[in-house]
Amino acid sequence: MYLFKLVLNFLSELGEYLIFVLRSCISFGNCRNRFKKLMQSILEIGFRCVLIILIIGLFTGMVMGLQMYYTLVKFGADTALGTAVSLSLIRELGPVLTALMIVGQSGSALTSEIGILRNYEQIDALETMNIDSKGFLAGPRIIAGIICFPILTAFFDLVGIFGGYFSGSVLMGLDAGIYWNKTIDSVQLVDVNGGFLKATIFGFLTMGICTFEGYNAHIKSAFKGIRGVTLAATKAVVKSSVLILIVDYLITSFLL
């Protein structure tokens, strides 16, 4: 009985979420000043994450370069370092870690901001002004997520591959020509497309969750006020992070 109720609640919330996300995107299409709102959202979600993505990408690539070098060298396969680093980053780690970082940095802020707007009746104020609050607040953020996630993933991949080169070639002494040749030879367009597909889906899903939780902070949380907003932000980050990993597995199993 408990399990049945749990499944029912999950399905009910999933339905609410999907309706919310679709309505937000459709309403955004009818909004005025769409370009301005979208650019502002890209600034909030994407631009502010560039530095952290570059740092995380660089060190992820460097760690991978080191770990893989020591593993591969045992089997005399250290020349495959470029292949291992680039494919791991482009196919898996790039989209996943980028999405997790954006959710941690921008997603939580987004949920809190919308939750506070809800708390201070600003969302109600929009409705009384005949402004569709979903299109006004959530729509541009979700679209910005779809645009920003693949771009930031590309940054992460490029910097990560460079990080792998730095630790594998510059520090450990692997020939740079071998590293870059192997990288260029092994990466196919299908790998890059697969990574971008994941990033786009992650952007849509996670920004949808973050806006949904913030928008409904007064209903979904057991607490009201500030506590409700912080709980909503926590829920948004946890749900998004778990979903990223589950969806990553599902997409990978379809792509391979």
Binding site: C31, N33, D124, A125, I131
Partner: peptide, 20 residues
């Protein structure tokens, strides 16, 4: 229920700026 991120002018203009 004023928007902190908007100036007084923009807050007042909001219903007209965003109206259809």
């Amino acid at each position: 229920a004023l928007f902190d991120s908007l100036s007084a002018f923009d807050n007042i203009a909001l219903p007209l700026v965003e109206s259809n």
